[in-house]
Amino acid sequence: MPAFSLEPEQQAWCAELRTLAAERLRPVAEKGEPGRVDRALLAELGRSGLLERLFASGALDLCLMRESLAHGCTEAETALALQGLGAHPVHAHGTPAQRARWLPAVADGSAVAAFALSERAAGSDAAALTLRADPDPGAAGGAGRGWRLTGEKCWISNAPEADFYTVFARTTPGAGARGITAFLVPADRPGLTGSALEMLSPHPIGALAFDGVPVTADDVLGETDRGFRVAMGTLNLFRPSVGAFAVGMAQAALEATLGHTARRDAFGGKLSDLPTVAHQVAEMALRTEAARLMVYAAATAYDAGAPGVPRRAAMAKLLATETAQYVVDTAVQLHGARALRRGHLLEHLYREVRAPRIYEGASEVQRGIIAKELYAETPPPTGEAP
Rank of each mutant, 00 (worst) to 15 (best):
V295C: 04
H260R: 14
D329K: 09
P310M: 06
T276H: 09
Y326T: 10
Q325V: 13
V328F: 07
K270T: 01
A266E: 09
R287S: 03
R264K: 05
E322R: 12
T323Q: 01
R292L: 13
L286E: 15
Y326V: 10
E283C: 02
G269F: 01
P307T: 15
A324F: 03
V328D: 03
D265S: 00
R292D: 02
R311T: 11
R292H: 09
T261S: 07
A306P: 11
V295K: 01
D329V: 08
K270C: 00
V327Q: 05
D273M: 00
H279S: 10
P307W: 12
K270P: 01
E322K: 11
A320R: 00
G268A: 08
G268N: 05
R264G: 00
A306R: 14
G308N: 08
H260F: 13
P310Q: 12
A282Y: 15
A262C: 07
M294R: 15
D329Q: 10
P275I: 12
A278P: 02
L286W: 13
A304Q: 15
D303R: 05
P275S: 14
A266L: 13
R287H: 07
G308T: 05
T261Y: 01
R312S: 09
G308V: 12
D273R: 00
A316Y: 05
T321M: 07
L318T: 06
Y302D: 12
R311D: 11
G268K: 04
V277P: 02
L286S: 11
E289S: 12
Y302F: 13
T323S: 04
P275H: 11
R312N: 08
Q325L: 12
Q280D: 13
M284F: 08
A299M: 08
T321Q: 08
V327E: 03
M284L: 13
P310I: 08
L271E: 00
V328N: 01
V332G: 02
L319T: 15
T276D: 11
Y302V: 09
L286Q: 14
L319P: 01
M294L: 15
G259V: 07
A314F: 05
D303L: 11
H279R: 11
Y296L: 12
V332L: 15
L319K: 11
G269S: 13
T323F: 00
E322S: 12
P307M: 14
M284N: 04
Y302Q: 11
H279Y: 09
V332F: 08
V277D: 00
M284Y: 10
D273I: 00
A282P: 13
V309C: 08
A331I: 07
Y326K: 10
A282V: 12
P275R: 14
Y296D: 10
R263S: 10
R312H: 09
T321D: 03
V309P: 10
A304P: 06
Q280H: 12
P307N: 15
V328L: 06
L318P: 02
L319A: 14
A298P: 05
A298N: 07
V327I: 06
A290L: 12
P275M: 09
A299W: 01
T321C: 14
A297E: 08
R311V: 10
R287M: 06
R312E: 10
A291E: 03
L318M: 15
E289D: 15
S272Q: 04
L286G: 06
A306C: 12
E283S: 06
A301W: 02
A299T: 07
Q325I: 09
